[in-house]
């Protein structure tokens, strides 16, 4: 699970609708895998990324220290875009847990696949 995917997911346990994002990553195995750098795509996705969630997650995992505030335009921001690319597209959570900050529900990540399935009484 790349951090881009992590950025899209939130806790969906019944009744847990505040403070359910971002899921805290308690990873036992995080790997870096190189991927093609596509600056247009990264710029495009920035409109949909929750920046603070990405920044705090990247920092907590020790992957990168991203700036608190993004420049108004990404024009000429090659280095920053590369850094965001590394965080979003090249950082994979392979094994560990995603923990809801609100209800503490734990979702397991095994071999890179997040198990977000809830059991019946949680739905």
């Amino acid at each position: 699970m790349r951090l881009l995917t992590h950025n899209l997911l939130q806790c969906h346990v019944k009744g847990c609708s505040t403070n359910n994002y971002p899921l805290r990553v308690e990873a036992t195995n995080v790997v870096h895998k190189e991927a093609d750098f596509n600056p247009e795509f990264i710029t495009h996705m920035l409109q949909k990324i929750e920046w603070n969630a990405l920044r705090t997650t990247a920092s907590a995992l020790g992957v990168a220290e991203l700036p608190e505030i993004l420049p108004l335009s990404m024009e000429g921001q090659e280095e920053l875009l590369k850094q965001i690319h590394l965080v979003l597209m090249e950082t994979h959570i392979m094994d560990g847990k995603l923990v809801c900050p609100g209800c503490s529900h734990e979702y397991l990540v095994t071999h890179g696949v997040g198990n977000m399935l809830l059991i019946e009484d949680e739905v």
Partner: peptide, 16 residues
């Protein structure tokens, strides 16, 4: 700052 947490009927969404 708090992305859409749930649909209006209270059912939480997994994906933003």
């Amino acid at each position: 700052s708090s992305p859409a947490a749930s649909s209006s009927n209270g059912l939480p969404l997994l994906v933003r």
